[in-house]
Amino acid sequence: VVISSTWRLQVPIDGLRARFSPDVAHRVVGVTPRFFELVNVPDSLLGYEREAECNAWLRANDRSVFPWLAVDDRSWLYRPFNQSLFLVDGKTGLTAEMAEELIILLHRP
């Protein structure tokens, strides 16, 4: 799990881990870089900050060839129809019902 939330701008990684249940907390391995710190952002990602940040983390950690999935409530931070975005409602967050959908999605080959 890599945190791309704006929480990462104010809270250290241990504080971020503390916001999750223990079974998820130990899986948090890092945070994405800030958009304004990125270099060589592809033109196709210039208007999509969060996706650019995710891609930068993937490249920096030799993971760019692996599938990834973002759980987010802000679709406009990703390119339209991005298959790597699992969109949640910002008012409710990740509900139990949506978590079941996410688990199914993550187990697909």
Rank of each mutant, 00 (worst) to 15 (best):
A52M: 11
Y48H: 03
M98N: 14
D62I: 02
L85I: 11
N61F: 00
G47H: 11
D89P: 13
Y48Q: 01
V41H: 09
G15K: 04
L105R: 12
P12Q: 05
G47F: 08
G15W: 02
L102H: 06
A18N: 03
W7G: 07
G90H: 04
V1G: 06
F86V: 00
P22R: 02
L38F: 13
E37I: 01
V71E: 12
R59F: 01
A56L: 01
G30Q: 05
G15M: 02
D89A: 12
L9I: 10
V88Q: 15
R8M: 08
Q10T: 08
L94Q: 15
S5V: 07
N61R: 03
N61G: 01
V29M: 04
L106V: 00
T95E: 14
L9E: 11
L87R: 12
R59P: 00
E53M: 01
A70V: 08
E100N: 06
D89V: 11
T92A: 13
P12M: 06
G47R: 10
D72A: 12
C54L: 10
N55V: 03
F66G: 02
G93E: 15
R59L: 09
A25G: 04
T32R: 04
V2T: 11
T95W: 13
E100G: 03
R8S: 12
I104C: 03
V88N: 10
H107V: 00
F36E: 13
D62A: 01
S21E: 07
E51C: 00
E101W: 14
H107G: 00
N61Q: 01
V65K: 12
H26N: 11
R108P: 00
D43W: 06
R27D: 06
T95K: 12
I3L: 14
E101P: 10
E100S: 00
D43L: 07
T95G: 15
W68R: 08
M98T: 11
F35N: 05
Q10Y: 07
V24F: 05
G93P: 14
V28E: 07
A25S: 15
T32G: 04
S64T: 05
H26A: 04
N61A: 01
S64F: 04
T92K: 07
V71W: 12
V28M: 02
V65D: 10
D89K: 15
V24N: 03
L46V: 08
W76K: 12
P12G: 04
L105I: 02
E100C: 00
A99W: 09
E51L: 00
W7N: 11
H107Q: 01
F66W: 06
S64A: 06
L105A: 04
L9K: 13
L105W: 05
H26T: 13
R63P: 00
H26S: 13
V65F: 10
A52H: 06
V11P: 06
S44E: 10
V11D: 08
L16I: 05
Q83E: 14
L77T: 11
A96V: 11
F20Q: 03
D73A: 14
D73H: 13
W76P: 06
Y78S: 05
F66C: 03
F35E: 10
Y48N: 02
P42D: 04
C54F: 09
V71Q: 09
V31Q: 08
T92Y: 09
S84H: 13
L69Q: 09
F86L: 06
G90Q: 07
E101Q: 15
R79P: 13
R27P: 00
D72K: 15
